[in-house]
Amino acid sequence: MSTEQQIQVSPSRRNGQRQFFRLNEIIAEQTGANRSLIAILQAVQEEYRYLPEEVLTYIATALDLSPATVFGVATFFAQFSLEPKGHYLVTICDGTACHVKRSMSVYDAICRKYDLTEGRLTTPDMLFTLETVACVGACGLAPVMIINGKTYGQISPEAAVAIVDKLANREEKEE
């Protein structure tokens, strides 16, 4: 097995059991008349950081829905991802305010530095995933970048790349 593959499976190695038990808790919380597929998918994505196929099938089984229907709901909403995401989720806001403040140049700078392209927005070592979002409601701070819940306001392309670099270096040292 190459190093790259090892890194890819490592998050589930550490968390498989807890995640799977949590998945069952989430489903159990939502059963009954008011069970809501979207709420389950949101909570499960929080746990797994994306929606693996087999987990979607498991949810369908538990809720007596067809897997095709669950897949349909999961692919309809942009908030759900069926691809594994990196350890750090780098979100660039591209709402109107951020856009006019040139948020896409921030996005492009990170793409260039980490060799990311449309359709391949996660680094091969699974450390970063880059994505855009249409307005996080922090227009006063435009342009805005969010990394794993932490918000960086009035960010320049250079500053954004520097922050991502710093996180990458820290991970390297820890390893």
Binding site: L56, A60, A68, V70, G72, T75
Partner: peptide, 28 residues
């Protein structure tokens, strides 16, 4: 009462397909 096919994705990308875009031979 089976539901092999359903709509997936959104907007201009909407397609009818089996779960996970698999072949009909790989699903129920």
């Amino acid at each position: 009462g089976i539901g092999v096919l359903d709509f997936a994705y959104r907007g201009a990308r909407v397609r009818v397909m089996p779960a996970f875009g698999k072949s009909l031979a790989e699903v129920e």
